[in-house]
Each structure stands twice: as C-alpha cells, then as structure tokens.
C-alpha cells in the first residue's frame, strides 16, 4: 500500500518562537525571501545576526510510515517550506528517501552545496526505517561540512497539535505498542518519549490531563485510547521539525551526533548451554 501526497505541513510556515495558538500552529503565509545563503557552516549564525538573510535547510524524517524530505527557509523570524515530498509506505524507506531528497532539491532549483544545515527526526520509530533518515542526514552533513541537528519526531506531531489543553501524541511502534509523549497546552513535551501498550499510554495520558490525541498511533488505537483524535498532523511535520531546530540553526550551534531514540533494546538472547546431540 502506498499513498503519495502531503503529510501535513505542506507549504506552511510556522513561527517557532511563539506558542501555537488555539487550533494549531500560527500559519505565516506571506513570506519575503531576500537572499539565500550559499553553503558553509556558520552562515546560520551570520544570518541570525544580520536578521535579514534566509538560509536553506534540508529536513528528513523516517520515523513513521511517512517518509519525508523537505527544504525549508529559515529566516530571522520564521520558517517557510520551499519544497516537500512525503510518501506513506512502511516498507520502503530505503528506496524512497534519497530520491525524495533529490526531488526537493530539484523542486527548489537548489544544489546540495546550497544547504546550510540538516534537521533530522530522531524518532522514536521502527528502527530499520528510522536509521535511513539519520544515516542520510549524517552522511550528507559530513560531505557538505554543515551541521546536523536532531529533533524528537513526536514533537513535530505534538507541538503543532497543542491548543491550550494537554495532548497525547502517538505513533505506531508495531508489536501492538505505541511510541508516545504528552505535551502541555503550549506544546511543550512534559512526558516521554516512551514506548508502551495503548492501554498504558492512555492511562498515563489521562493522569496528565490530556484531552485530545494526535498522530498515526492515535488513529490506529483510537478506541483503546478513548480520546478525541485530532486529524492533523498524522505524521511528523517537516516545517515544525525545522522550527524546533531554528534557534540552533540561527545561532550556528555545533553539529549534533544523530543518535536514534530507540527506546527498546535489540532482540537478542545471550547464548546458553548447548543442547547435547547424544540421547
């Protein structure tokens, strides 16, 4: 099953410095592009100081079935989407992501060397797919000599869904479990990320006063969670991911090692005594 289309956040800009207002993030429509910084680390800091430059940032997320690549412009006062590709297919992250990165660069008429930073969703998410996004970001950052920044992928679901009341953001962890976190009314993560059964997630969310649930995991387990489900964003929103890293981008913060939020140990059992072959 494959569904191609926007996975939320398409063509939208979020002002990251203000808490999201009722009903979702602030949508900043009119964007004025003055200049695009070309290449090199540290330009983010320069742009921040000058206040009028715009830098081009690549965003990738492969923590959910929605394989996402986007190009955003980060300016002194906002983040705006330039190009966005998203394909929902839980089994083809490895095939889909690189062509999508290539496509968003082409869509924006940009080349890799035009990038100033890369933002990647750190998960949590199914390991195999999650690593595709992180290794793509890390290797591209290495070649281009630009910083990479990690953001908890659930934040890009929970933050834009905040509407004054606590919200539970959840994605599918397979094995009948959820990856989840709870956000306060302003979109700040207060608990999580964690992995547990929907029953446990629901009980914890209720304790924390969540009145609404959001994310693909919330859709899948709506009945068990027994909370109203906010339709969007269903998957991590690329523009929000960039917004949540925008301070670091503007400050030219040091590059971060992109360590996945695994939350589970590898399945492995230590070798035990050998079974004898003689009867």
């Amino acid at each position: 099953m494959r569904w191609v289309g926007p996975c939320g956040g398409f063509g939208r800009a979020v002002a990251p410095d203000q808490p999201a207002g009722p009903g979702g993030p602030l949508v900043w429509e009119g964007r004025v592009r003055v200049a695009v910084c070309r290449g090199g680390a540290g330009l983010g800091a320069l742009a921040g100081r000058l206040g009028w430059l715009t830098v081009l940032v690549l965003v990738v997320d492969s923590s959910t079935p929605a394989v996402t690549a986007a190009l955003v412009e980060v300016s002194a006062d906002g983040v705006a989407s330039r190009a966005h590709r998203c394909t929902v297919d839980a089994r083809a992250h490895g095939e889909l992501l690189a062509p999508q990165v290539d496509a968003v660069l082409a869509d924006a008429d940009a080349r890799p060397r035009d990038l100033t930073a890369i933002v990647a969703g750190l998960g949590p998410g199914p390991f195999t797919g999650l690593r595709v996004g992180l290794v793509t970001a890390a290797t591209m950052g290495q070649v281009l000599g630009i910083p990479t920044y990690g953001v908890c992928s659930l934040d890009a679901i929970g933050y834009p869904a905040a509407s004054g009341e606590p919200v539970l953001a959840a994605s599918d962890a397979r094995r009948k479990e959820l990856y989840w976190a709870v956000y306060d009314g302003a979109g700040e993560r207060v608990v999580g990320p964690e992995v547990s059964t929907p029953v446990v997630a629901a009980a914890r969310a209720r304790e924390l006063g969540a009145t609404i649930a959001v994310g693909d995991g919330a859709h899948r387990y709506a009945e068990t969670l027994d909370l109203p489900v906010r339709v969007e964003p269903r998957y991590p929103d690329a523009t929000v991911l960039a917004s949540l890293a925008a301070e670091r981008i503007r400050a030219g913060a040091p590059s971060e090692r992109l360590t996945p939020l695994y939350l589970r140990r590898p399945d492995a059992v230590a070798a035990t005594g050998r079974k004898p072959v003689l009867p």
Binding site: G94, A98, V101, P112, V132, T136, A137, T139, M140, L144
Partner: peptide, 17 residues
C-alpha cells in the same frame, strides 16, 4: 537491516557529493 544502513549512507554520500 545492516545492508540498509550502508545503502542509505552510500546514497547520502552520492547525493551530497
């Protein structure tokens, strides 16, 4: 899963370079 890390890395290097 192990192959996929290398293949994605190779694509990242190839794309960026």
């Amino acid at each position: 899963g192990a192959l996929l890390v290398g293949v994605a890395a190779a694509k990242g290097y190839a794309l960026a370079a």
